[in-house]
Design a protein around this nucleic acid. Structure first.
Length: 208
DNA sequence: ACATTAAGTGATT
DNA sequence: AATCACTTAATGT
């Protein structure tokens, strides 16, 4: 499949790509679609071919927190752990933009670990990268003030979408950062006064 | 014109 | 930094 080769040909060996092509089903998720929800059992492993996926941690009662984004050529490491242990998902995956995902049945995952070095590499690297991102998320919570968290959030999103103009509400930021709308609005206003951003309704322009 | 949703702000904890 | 209460502004029907 074209998309598969496009996203993974530089990462995975040809033989594995061929096998992937046979067993993976490519699915399309429109922006905003919940791909995996809390408590859902995970029987497939997603390989992101195109688009971006937002991974959120969700508390039992209320409270969500953005963990990281999945981009082209990446996979959700959480699903690996889930598949092996036959556990249910502890996170929520939402399509940030329209996305194509190759779903691989979990039976192949372990088999390929022994069979294909490039697969082993890919999984290891994914783990390392995700671990780094988790640490960054924790650092943000523990050591950063809200202002820095918001700025980082806006910058990351802007880079991800390759657009300095972001279409989103203050409430959405509050949800992603597990804060409240009022707090976000105040800090955004401050950032605007410092000429770091421009605020419009449903829109934020990142200047820095 | 009216209702709804997004954003701004002072006061309080 | 969070919550409350209220205002103002933008948008949809």
């Amino acid at each position: 499949m074209d998309r598969l080769a496009l996203a993974f040909s530089s990462i995975l060996e040809p033989a594995l790509l061929g096998e992937l092509d046979k067993v993976a089903s490519v699915r399309f998720f429109r922006e905003g679609t919940v791909i995996v929800d809390l408590g859902q059992s995970v029987k497939m492993m997603p390989l992101l071919l195109e688009g971006a996926i937002k991974i959120m941690r969700q508390d039992a009662e209320q409270g969500e927190l953005l963990l990281y984004y999945l981009e082209q050529g990446e996979t959700c490491t959480m699903s690996l752990a889930c598949c092996v242990g036959e556990k249910v998902s502890e996170i929520r995956a939402i399509a940030e933009i329209d996305s194509y995902v190759a779903m691989v049945p979990n039976v192949y995952m372990q088999e390929w670990l022994g069979k294909y070095p490039s697969w082993r590499n890919f999984i290891m690297q994914s783990y390392a990268q995700r671990m780094d991102e988790m640490l960054a998320a924790i650092d943000g919570l523990a050591f950063s003030n809200m202002e820095k968290r918001i700025l980082d959030y806006l910058r990351e999103k802007s880079a991800l979408l390759d657009d300095r103009i972001l279409t989103l509400t203050h409430q959405q930021i509050a949800t992603d950062l597990n804060s409240s709308r009022v707090v976000i609005s105040r800090i955004l206003k401050k950032l605007e006064n410092e000429d770091k951003i421009v605020l419009l309704r449903n829109e934020i322009r990142v200047l820095i």
